Simulated scan of single mutants.
Amino acid sequence: MIDLIHVTKRFGVATAVDDISLSVAQGELCVLVGTSGCGKSTTLRMINRLIEHSEGEIHIDGQQIRRFRQETLRRRMGYAIQSTGLFPHWTVARNIGLVPRLLKWPAARIQARVEELMALLGLSMEEFAHKYPHQLSGGQAQRVGVARALAADPDILLMDEPFGALDPITRESLQDELRELQARLHKTIVFVTHDMDEALRLADHLVVMHQGRIVQQGWPLELLREPADGFVESLFGGEDRGLKEAALLPVSQRMQPLGHDLPARERIGQQASLREALSVMLWRHAERLTVVDDDGQPVGELSLRRLVGARRDD
């Protein structure tokens, strides 16, 4: 879907992005992560030509992006940023319908699309359609920003630190919503963040950048278990990598069949993470947990020994 081939970006004598190559498959959620100034946001903005690349080629669906008119290219890509970029003097409904209006959709089609997206993102038409951005919470405004980015049904969604200014609870909630949204819509998403926990939680394809270069990319578990160098290892938390890995694995991958003795008093859902299970064990002083399904029915058990001592075969 997206190919960057030996792409470099220079600002005068300074090199912001240095000879990177990257492929993002259709329907994949690719996360660019790294410290401030590593080139990840510049890379994102080169994809929709907000910034022009200096060398190399960028392809969308096999075609070089410079063969598209800038306006045409940008309208087929949704773009969501940290500050939302909502027009303060426009209502929520008008903000969401911006790109369809630019594309000269009929009014009835725009209205239907606005209603569809607001429902998809949990925003009641009656409550929010006529509000202005200053009347929204941070999480609500960010949902409107995502809805606007999706309004013209683009194949590609670019997201630059979209949840960076939110409190941890709202941020985690929106991360969950993004994953659920992606499971339904199957958009190709390139997402920029400096937060490693967010990157690990969201990514299908994780790309680590440092000083303008890609130092490692692959599946999140692959990078956690086999960091390419000391920088990647430290970025993932060094000795804390075990807990980060546990946050990615569901209890169902470690649980065992129910034993013949009495079930453990403490319970955990089978889709909870191993990190959550460990937290429950420590908090409740329990060495065993009964694993339950969505209906609360026991389906297995998890022991502390199994949690920390099982072979990593997933």
Results as ranks from 00 to 15, higher is better:
Arg312Tyr: 12
His59Lys: 14
Trp90Cys: 05
Met1Lys: 06
Cys38Pro: 10
Leu262Tyr: 03
Thr193Trp: 03
Thr72His: 07
Gly164Leu: 08
Arg254Gln: 14
Val192Leu: 00
Glu226Tyr: 11
Ala228Leu: 11
Glu115Gln: 14
Met46Asp: 11
Glu52Leu: 06
His6Phe: 03
Ile51Ser: 12
Gln82Asp: 08
Pro168Trp: 03
Asp176Ser: 09
His89Leu: 02
Gln140Ser: 11
Gly259Cys: 10
Glu126Trp: 13
Leu120Gly: 01
Gly145Val: 06
Leu22Ser: 02
Asp19Gly: 09
His194Pro: 02
Leu158Glu: 01
Thr170Gln: 00
Ser21Lys: 14
Leu278Lys: 12
Asn48Cys: 14
Gly212Leu: 08
Glu266His: 15
Glu198Tyr: 11
Ile65Thr: 11
Leu278Ser: 05
Leu304Met: 15
Arg225Gly: 11
Asp160Arg: 04
Met77Gly: 05
Gln26Ser: 09
Asp3Met: 05
Pro257Asn: 08
Met46Ile: 05
Leu103Asn: 03
Ile169Ala: 03
Ile20Thr: 01
Ser234Leu: 06
Leu73Ser: 03
Leu223Cys: 05
Gln26Val: 01
Arg275His: 07
Pro227Phe: 05
Leu150Ile: 04
Val144Gln: 04
Thr84Met: 03
Ala141Thr: 09
Gln64Tyr: 00
Asp229Leu: 10
Leu150Ser: 02
Ser83Tyr: 14
Pro100Glu: 15
Ile169Phe: 11
Val207Glu: 10
Glu301Arg: 15
Val280Gly: 01
His186Ser: 10
Gln135Asn: 10
Met196Asp: 00
Phe191Thr: 00
Leu243Phe: 13
Leu223Tyr: 06
Ile110Tyr: 05
Ala286Leu: 10
Asp3Pro: 02
Val17Ile: 13
Leu249Val: 15
Trp90Met: 15
Phe87Ser: 03
Arg312His: 09
His194Ile: 01
Val251Gln: 13
Gly122Phe: 10
Val99Met: 06
Leu73Ile: 10
Ala183Phe: 01
Tyr79Pro: 12
Ile81Lys: 06
His260Phe: 06
His134Pro: 00
Leu185Gly: 11
Pro298Gly: 14
Leu102Val: 07
Asp18Arg: 11
Glu57Leu: 04
Gly85Asp: 12
Pro133Glu: 02
His285Leu: 02
His53Gln: 09
Val292Gln: 02
Ala119Arg: 01
Gln253Gly: 03
Ala80Thr: 03
Thr170Tyr: 00
Ile268Met: 00
Leu282Met: 14
Glu276Arg: 12
Glu301Trp: 13
His260Ser: 13
Arg94Thr: 15
Arg225Trp: 08
Thr35Phe: 09
Glu276Cys: 05
Ala286Lys: 12
Gly139Pro: 06
Arg10His: 12
Ala80Tyr: 01
Gly85Met: 10
Ala14Ile: 09
Thr8Ala: 06
Ile268Gly: 04
Pro106Gly: 13
Gln82Met: 08
Val146Pro: 01
Leu44Phe: 00
Val308Ser: 14
Val207Gln: 07
Gln142Tyr: 07
Leu150Met: 14
Thr290Ser: 05
Tyr132Lys: 14
Pro250Cys: 04
Arg306Gln: 15
Ser273Ala: 09
Lys131Arg: 15
Arg201Leu: 08
Ser21Pro: 14
Thr35Met: 11
Gln256Val: 14
